[in-house]
Structure formats: structure tokens, C-alpha cells
Design a protein around this nucleic acid. Structure first.
Length: 415
RNA sequence: GCGGAGUUAGCUCAGUCGGUAGAGCGUCAGUUUGUGGCACUGAAUGUCGCGGGUUCGAACCCCGUACUUCGCCCCA
């Protein structure tokens, strides 16, 4: 038996309703916030990601599906969407002066990781990007969109964590402070955190090691390092959120894994996800466009993991079942009446009803059982009597009432 | 990349002194052959993840491997 590639999953008919439900919500909520959908290729030149996501991040370092194509070009299956959107915006010149662009996306992303609950090698994300504004209002609106979406999906038990990383300079200063603090205590630091200290010092703040956590209690706080303008910006964002009745939790240890973030960062977390407790996250990325060779364009956005949303919905027993909304099941007493059945099906289908009839030569009785199993609202019974009298028997499966109508009255029948 | 647990019928799982497999649910058929749901009766179904090894004999023991899962790590 050939198995699916490790870390990939089939979405089966029984599960697809939940996906469709989520996709509908994405469209609905983004529409309310006036975001437009955007789609980019599944693969990009490798540098799109290596230049933006960060050379020292694991994503770029060891998790990308990168290959050399037949033309000798280094190609990478997208591990995330933001960088590719930035590339497309620059290339297509979508941002004229002072323009604002609000886009959303939904698609597959690829990272070569060890699979786990809520962590796949091909996974799906929904996300938004608000590009061209550096105002706290744009931060707030983007976060509010995320919260609205989560609410509409039916998830209430989650936390919104928020922090500010300040501007590039602030972060540089903070990194120095943090490193010098941690180095003076490095004997106690976990092996992993010592490595992080070299590569990506901010991530030490994320450590789950109990000793590290204790040590970090007295570490310098990023909020004390960031400049006034960033501080004011952050405060305004918080004010707007409060004003919109958004519950948030300030967490100055929240840093994000991708290098391009600055100022506002945030994360949606749930307890249903095990080790992967975050089901969404984002932040401001004011340097990304410049990193790709464009102008300096401020932007903010977030992404959510669809598989993780579904895990939460499952825990809430809110996944959509696959109950078929079948209107008519046509039961024939013999396959010699199939012509008649096709005619009836054609009329009903052209009137937008869903119609099923047996294609496997089931017995008369089995067809009824089948109709019941498929939860059909009506059955249409076709046998010798109906065909000879050019009529149709229609049975209401809920009430068991059955009527006989003329064939040419079928069009008038309303369920 | 590292550590733990697991893989038996479509699904959930049982199956240890090693003797070529079971339950429940589901599926299918029948219970006066043109009428479903309930009930009853009956039936089908597995290379026991895959590949080696030990043994007269392996679902069970040993080795390898794939995948799943829980953590580390990373991140959505």
C-alpha cells in the first residue's frame, strides 16, 4: 500500500464540511473588514524566504522544502505566506503612494518538521495583511478582525497575548541587554537556550525550561527599552482594543519566531493544542518590504493554523457533520424504469433540488433503507403503476405521507 | 535532529506460559417478493503496519524499517 507522505493528511468527504465552514467564515469576515483575497504561487525563489524570514530561524535553516529545478534555480515550497505576498505586491506595483492594501489568503504551506499534534509538513493557514499603514489603528483593526473571526467560528476559550518589540534599534539594544544579563547567569541556562543566545537571543524568552523561566523573571524587560514613539503606539493599540471590548493579556516575553517582526506582536493561544498552544499569531513587519528590495512599507498581519482551529473545534464538539441535505431519493422498482427516473431527476435538478438515485441495482427495499440513511426528505417511487399512468408517487419521509401526482405537475411540486 | 508510547475487520478496541484471530458499532441480506426508521435472524470482511530473524509453529519473542501519537525543539 502506498501511504501518503509523512506529515500530510487527506481531507475526506466526512471532514470536508468543517473546512468549507471555515472557508466561508474567512470570506465573510474579511469582507466585513474590506480585505480582498490574494493568491500567490505555491513555490517561490528561495531568496524570497531566506532574505525575510531569517537565516537563523529553523524555518529557513532546516525546515524548507528547497530544490534546484531543471534550470538550476533554487526553488522553495512556501513555508509561510507573508514574504510571498510582499514579493507579489512589489512586483505588481500594487501600492502607489500612500495607498493601503488589505488582503487575505488561505492555502497550503510546507515545513519539514517532525509531525505532531497540530503540526504537519503540509499544513494550511488563513491570514491577513494590512499593508501601507503604520498607525495603531491599523494594528487594532487587524487584531479585531482576528478576534471577530475566532468568535464567529465559535471559539471562546482562548487568550490573546500581545506585546511590543519596539523598532529595529530598540530590539538591537534590548538584545544586548538581554545577552549581557543572561551571559552573567549562563551557567544556569539550559543547553538549548545557550545556543539560542547566539543565534536568536529573543527566543530565550520563550524557553519552557523551568530553570530558564526562573532566571528570566529578573531579566530586563523589553518594554523598558523601547522608544517613546513605539511605547505610545503600543498604548494606543491597547486602548483601541479595550474600546472594542477585546480581552487581551500583555506579555512582555512574547516574541515571535520570524525575524521580520517589529513593534506590535500578538498570538492567539488555546489549551486544547498540547505543546502547540498557539493557533494564530502575527505582528507588525515594517522592514520586510525593504528586505525584498522594495521601498519601506509598514504593514501588519497575522496567520492562523487551520488544522489547529479544527482541533479546537473538535474539542468543543463543533465540527460540522456531513449530514447530507438530500431532497429527493428516486426509488425504482426495476431498472427498466431508469429512463423515467432520469427524466424526473433532470426536472428536479434543474429546479435546484438535490436528487439521488441508486446506481448499484439495489433491491426496492434497500433503496428505501438507503434513502433513510442518506437522510432524504422525500422519496419518489417509480414502478409499473406510475410509469403506465404517467405519474409520480412522492413520499414525505418525515411524515410518511405519500401522494400521487401527474408527471407534468412535478415542476409545481415544492418541498 | 533527540526521547517515550503505539500500529489487529470500514470504525473503536480485546487478544502473554508463542499453537495460523475476536467483540461492539457499522456494512450487506432476509423476516409474505411496491415502501425506510425499530426489533429479530443470518452473512461477509483481516497478507494482526512492512521486512527479516528465532521456533516444528509468531499478532505475541528479537532486529530493522515506515507511519501515528506525546514531549523536546520549532511554529500557525
Amino acid at each position: 500500500m502506498i501511504q501518503a507522505v509523512k506529515g500530510t493528511k487527506d481531507i475526506l468527504p466526512i471532514n470536508v464540511k468543517t473546512w468549507q465552514f471555515l472557508e466561508e467564515k474567512f470570506r465573510l469576515i474579511t469582507h466585513r473588514f474590506s480585505y480582498n483575497e490574494m493568491r500567490t504561487p505555491i513555490f517561490e525563489k528561495t531568496e524570497v524566504f531566506s532574505r525575510t524570514v531569517g537565516d537563523e530561524t529553523d524555518i529557513v535553516n532546516k525546515e524548507m522544502y528547497t530544490f534546484i529545478d531543471k534550470g538550476g534555480e533554487s526553488i522553495t515550497l512556501r513555508p509561510e505566506q507573508t514574504a510571498a505576498i510582499a514579493r507579489a505586491i512589489i512586483q505588481n506595483n500594487l501600492l502607489q503612494d500612500n495607498n493601503l492594501l488589505k488582503v487575505w489568503y488561505f492555502g497550503s504551506y510546507f515545513r519539514y518538521e517532525r509531525p505532531q499534534k497540530g503540526r504537519l509538513r503540509e499544513f494550511h493557514q488563513f491570514g491577513t495583511e494590512c499593508i501601507g499603514s503604520n498607525t495603531p489603528e491599523s494594528d487594532a483593526e487587524n487584531i479585531i478582525l482576528g478576534c471577530e473571526l475566532i468568535r464567529e467560528i465559535g471559539i471562546n476559550n482562548y487568550s490573546l497575548l500581545i506585546n511590543s518589540l519596539g523598532n529595529e534599534n530598540d530590539r538591537k539594544n534590548y538584545k544586548e541587554k538581554l545577552i549581557s544579563y543572561l551571559k552573567s547567569n549562563s551557567l544556569d541556562l539550559s543547553e538549548e537556550s545557550i545556543q539560542r543566545l547566539e543565534k536568536n537571543p529573543l527566543r530565550v524568552l520563550d524557553s519552557k525550561d523551568p530553570v530558564d523561566i526562573e532566571l528570566l523573571k529578573n531579566a530586563p524587560n523589553i518594554i523598558d527599552t523601547i522608544e517613546d514613539s513605539s511605547l505610545k503606539h503600543f498604548q494606543k493599540v491597547l486602548d483601541y482594543l479595550k474600546n472594542s471590548n477585546i480581552n487581551y493579556e500583555i506579555n512582555h516575553k512574547l516574541v515571535r519566531g520570524l525575524d521580520y517582526y517589529s513593534d506590535t506582536v500578538f498570538e492567539f493561544q488555546s489549551n486544547e493544542l498540547g505543546a502547540q498552544n498557539s493557533f494564530g499569531g502575527g505582528g507588525r513587519y515594517n522592514t520586510l518590504f525593504a528586505q525584498l528590495g522594495g521601498k519601506n512599507i509598514p504593514a501588519i498581519g497575522f496567520a492562523m493554523g487551520i488544522e489547529r482551529l479544527i482541533i479546537i473545534l473538535e474539542s468543543l464538539d463543533k465540527c460540522k457533520d456531513n449530514s447530507n441535505s438530500l431532497d429527493f431519493y428516486i426509488v425504482v422498482s426495476s431498472s427498466e424504469y431508469s429512463n423515467y427516473a432520469f427524466k424526473i431527476a433532470d426536472i428536479l435538478r434543474k429546479n435546484n433540488y438535490s436528487v439521488y438515485f441508486d446506481l448499484t441495482n439495489k433491491s426496492f427495499k434497500s433503496q428505501f433503507k438507503d434513502a433513510n440513511k442518506l437522510n432524504s426528505n422525500y422519496t419518489i417511487i417509480i414502478g409499473e403503476n406510475e410509469v403506465n399512468s404517467n405519474s409520480i408517487s412522492i413520499k414525505n419521509m418525515k411524515t410518511s405521507e405519500q401522494i400521487l401526482i401527474e408527471f407534468n405537475k412535478l415542476e409545481e411540486f415544492k418541498i
